[in-house]
Design a protein around this nucleic acid. Structure first.
Lengths: 291, 291
DNA sequence: TCATTTATCTGACTTTAGTCAGGTATTTAT
DNA sequence: ATAAATACCTGACTAAAGTCAGATAAATGA
């Protein structure tokens, strides 16, 4: 990494630090110290029990306790013991607290909208922000098996289809591409794995099974903003593990040489090229892997 | 601006706030309060006199004074009166202070390198960071007339040429493109205007004059990361003002329809299409504007 | 059951940050 | 020459943030 690149990174850090500081100043204008405001916001964002708040905000138990007491006497929150474990406690915003939380939310949203609005093409800026967000939050990316019918899968598949349409100049239609039955993409026959950051979908891959020991890998996709971080490999590892757990011993897949990143990943991960095994219009290269 | 976009912005804010916080924690591990560390770093970055420090760090005079006293007793800085105005004072890092500043610099650089290194394609991430940096620092962008021989102009011109090569599929060579003499691009005949953020070049435009009242606009370019912010218009306004100041009454320019953003900007700013006025190979559309 | 652990709270601190009213030395304006 | 303005400093504060050693109540484990 050369110094010029590091300087660009640090210019970035400086500019966002200024922006963060300005937002905090606007919070302080509400007349409440930042510590209390942070706690109030964390509660509003759904961090309801005290120990969750403590880890989320990295606060000392004594300090947090006092801040909660403060918000309580302001009438912004109510605290009651957790019925499941009466040692721990659950906080909740009162209607007044809800109102105050909304004020903070509005301040944040307005700052965001302001910066986005002065861009002729906010999409360009947001794409850049996604790239940064994902790079900085790399540790928080999760790989989960999800229901094929869930909303996040729909998001992934439409992004997947849109990208293939663009890259395969022939266009692309999911339905002409060995489109699986629901039952083939969920337990016990198959599964669907999604890479996520919070609720932002970063990538996906499906295992399309039929109860035999041979199954197919379908719909492998990584969001453009998430590329270059090695997520595809981790996604494939997760999928292969899931296949093994379903007693699948042979995986096959089809793809297109235009998707060169995918092709070289498969080659890299021990997939072997095999003969065409279907008549789908889009693929022109086929792979197999014994698990 | 819809809520989904605002949420993406706010996810971004959250992730960078975490990163900023982590860097500050690593600073605190040096055993010095953040306030002092900030002052030390500001001095190391070249903010030498006390009033400059005060505005840069937005600190109260009393507070800054005390922080300086603290760094002095630590033996990290020395302060002496400004010989030009003995009311004001100039601070300087001692050798020990220099060392300590380097430690902070190393901490920052290492964090940056760490995040960049885990990216297969750091250029992609850095480009995204530039887009964000420029969007957030929009108010700090300056438009300056500079010497045609200066380093920043060389940077702009090579980026300009690289982009034209890519977009005009015929390729592009500065020398075949009415390449001006040095004297034509500087006072009193012409000038060269650069848009900058700090020392990052964001765009440029030249006025190529020959002592008559007619001059030519050349080399208009905006960095990809800086597009969509309306900089081209501000750049052109600056250039037209500079031309007026040089007693130029008619400006002409040539460009290519492929550069559609530029063409529509000219049309928008009151330029009128005229007949071809040179034999250069690249342009296919010509404009004129009376000042 | 009873010692131990866990989750939170309280009190008594210290440190850091921030504010503000003078005060001194120097420069500027008239 | 002298009043006003400027640049910085000091002292005397307040507020906020952070620390830490108990204390209490509830849950857990042998």
């Amino acid at each position: 990494m050369n110094q010029d690149q590091i300087n660009r990174f640090r210019n970035f850090s400086r500019s966002v630090a200024v922006e963060v500081g300005a937002l905090e100043d606007s919070f302080l204008n509400r007349g409440r110290p930042l510590g209390s405001a942070r706690v109030l916001n964390a509660i509003g964002l759904g961090h309801e029990n005290v120990s969750d708040l403590r880890t989320y905000l990295k606060l000392d138990t004594g300090l947090l306790s006092r801040l909660l007491r403060g918000l309580e006497t302001e009438g912004l929150i109510e605290t009651k013991p957790n019925p499941v474990d009466r040692r721990s406690r659950i906080t909740k915003l009162t209607p007044k607290g809800d109102q105050e939380f909304d004020v903070y939310e509005t301040l944040s949203n307005e700052r965001a909208a302001n910066i986005l609005d002065r861009h002729k093409n906010a999409r360009h800026l947001l794409d850049a922000m996604d790239v940064v967000t994902i790079a900085l939050s790399r540790e928080d990316i999760t790989f989960e098996e999800v229901q094929y019918t869930s909303e996040i899968v729909a998001k992934c598949l439409s992004a997947f289809a849109a990208e293939l349409s663009k890259r395969l100049n022939s266009g692309f239609d999911l339905e002409n591409s060995g489109d699986p039955e629901l039952s083939q993409m969920q337990h016990p026959h198959g599964t669907f794995v999604v890479a996520k950051l919070g609720d932002m979908p970063l990538g996906c891959v499906g295992i399309k099974g039929n109860g035999t020991s041979v199954a197919e890998v379908k719909r492998m996709w990584i969001a453009p903003a998430a590329r270059g971080l090695g997520l595809a490999r981790r996604l494939m590892v997760t999928a292969e593990d899931a296949a093994r757990a379903l007693s699948i011993t042979t995986l096959r897949l089809d793809t297109n040489r235009i998707l060169f990143e995918a092709v070289s990943l498969y080659q890299n991960m021990g997939w072997l090229e095999i003969d065409r095994f279907n008549d789908d219009p889009y693929p022109d290269i086929f792979f197999e892997k014994k698990l």
